[in-house]
């Protein structure tokens, strides 16, 4: 499964449309199959980020707040969206790989990071 996390510094970015950095990882159901890739986006754009997600064949998006139209778009594209996540992206990655990350999750690391 290809997973994309929108990030800001060490955390999940608060908003999908404001994210300028994403991490893409591939997971075979037990572990990551390669070193996660970080992509710096040229500017903030929810539309361009959506295009990237579709073109990359991402199957799961982990993000903070996201507008309903984008959420619906991904649902239609059969892309799972785990939104409203607060916390460190490393912890989010561990949880999503373990199948334990839910929308609206406030992770243990949330109170440490900025």
């Amino acid at each position: 499964m290809k997973i994309l996390l929108t990030v800001q510094d060490n955390s999940i970015a608060p908003r999908f449309d404001q994210a300028t950095e994403v991490i893409i990882a591939e997971h075979d159901g037990r572990r990551l199959t390669a070193e996660p890739r970080t992509i710096i986006l040229p500017h903030r754009s929810a539309e361009e980020l959506s295009d990237l997600i579709v073109k990359e064949g991402v199957q799961c998006v982990v993000c903070g707040g996201i507008e309903d139209s984008f959420h619906k778009f991904f649902t239609w594209k059969k892309i799972t969206v785990i939104d409203g996540v607060i916390g460190a992206h490393a912890e989010a990655m561990d949880k999503v790989c373990a199948g334990e990350l839910r929308p609206g999750a406030i992770l243990a690391s949330a109170k440490q990071g900025e």
Binding site: P14, R15, K111, E114
Partner: peptide, 8 residues
Amino acid sequence: VYVDFVLR
């Protein structure tokens, strides 16, 4: 928690 994660 850092404020902008809450306000979005």
